[in-house]
Nucleic acid binder design. Structure first.
Lengths: 231, 231
DNA sequence: TCAATAGTGTCTGTAAGACAGTATTGT
DNA sequence: ACAATACTGTCTTACAGACACTATTGA
């Protein structure tokens, strides 16, 4: 039962699909590969899982390396594992892919490992030719992010707390590429128990004038009842 | 960059959380372990990924071995990958877990590999002490199956086609452990585009009498718009 | 005829979408 | 004053939940 052919050795990596909102558009972090294979092509950041780590811990380590931050302020979850033989021409590599997102991540060039990392709007990245099977992974990750907005509170992880209802609306509109009626969006969010909690204070004034918005923080809920339906 | 400590060898396995409806209750396939570690304890079926297979192919191979069927008639999807160091006391094992379900699967004792495989209602299995981290995996798999019924057409994979609306209702009631008003459930299903398509013919008569039901087959849709909300 | 199951009609409350109107702020 | 943004109210339509009713079948 336990001879060597039964458990051939694999290398295990983690890859990250990291998203943030930059300006009006959802963006993903890419790195330009410095070596073969796929040298010079954009790819998702990632690395090998060490002998004494879980994939989860490895993903958090990579996250810290890429962002330069000690503790990652956003959300991290496992997406899926990609294991086609031949997906890496060097050897048999199984990749556990994670999706991460956070508000306002800094430009990644801040002296870190990932000197060649950069943000790209997902609209553009989806049209790029990516290394390995990363184009497929990016498509799967995008669909995960989009569907999770429907029935979880993850949108609050894309903005810094405290935030206004309008900030949340911007998240939904950027990720789904739709527009909402402001009044109806507001009613929907406030009518979903545990989504947001009001806090003291109002938003800073916009230079252009206009009433200042009530601020909120994330509520207790993690899943939305009822969900925010994707139009 | 590519020295041996960067990519320590892992063994990669697939484990299966296979569900079917047996009588009124959702059941999961367990095997009694014949060897150490955890000898004699129930576990989810699984095995090593071979050197030339993807995890997906390995899962289908295991599925065929467990059921004795050449082509598995139901649905198979990846759940998640479990990679804690120490989850297998023998060595470093990363397990890619799949969720499968199908209607009316036969008793698994039919002369196959898995002489010690058996179905157990999930209600009971969740209270069992399972080998490795399989109790956690089972809990995650159950939550996946339950949530997928809400917004996908997967319920149609739990029944043989053609089926009646009432058959579908039985699936929802068994998986969610709820009851539905028959009229409202019917309206909901028929009002969801692409969920079911009527076919010629009606169900066989029940021995106890009663009108015979219109039969349906799965529709074109894979996701439900609107979803069937979990009460 | 009766019991059992399939299917239809209808009423009521609630929520979604559309959109008009009021409130508050900077220029 | 005016433009820009936040917020509120209201009307209409659609659907969910409850439940009474009709249709079809076997014993």
């Amino acid at each position: 039962m336990y001879d060597a052919t039964d458990y051939p050795p694999f290398a295990v990596t983690v890859d990250l699909a990291m998203f943030t909102l930059r300006g009006p558009s959802l963006s993903v972090l890419l790195v330009r590969r410095g070596e073969e294979p796929f040298q010079g092509m954009p790819a998702l950041p990632g690395g090998f899982v060490h002998a004494d780590e879980s994939a989860d811990v490895a993903a958090r380590r990579e996250l810290a390396e890429e962002t330069g931050l000690d503790s990652f302020p956003g959300h991290l979850e496992q997406l899926a594992t990609y294991s086609e033989p031949g997906r890496d021409p060097r050897m048999r590599v199984v990749s556990v892919v994670f999706v991460a997102f956070a508000p306002n991540l800094p430009e990644p060039s801040a002296g870190s490992d990932a000197a060649d990392a950069y943000w790209m709007p997902v609209e553009d990245a989806s049209r790029e030719s990516l290394a390995f099977d990363h184009a497929q992974i990016l498509a799967d990750a995008l669909e995960r992010v989009r569907s999770k907005l429907e029935y979880t509170t993850l949108a609050t992880h894309f903005v810094e707390s405290p935030f206004s209802i309008r900030d949340l609306q911007t998240v939904y509109e950027a990720v789904w590429d739709v527009t909402w009626d402001r009044a109806n969006f507001r009613r929907k969010v406030l009518g979903t128990r545990g989504f947001v909690e009001p806090v003291e204070g109002v938003a800073d004034a916009a230079s252009t004038g206009g009433r200042r918005a009530q601020l909120y923080r994330p509520g207790d809920a993690t899943t939305l009842h009822p969900p925010i339906p994707r139009p």
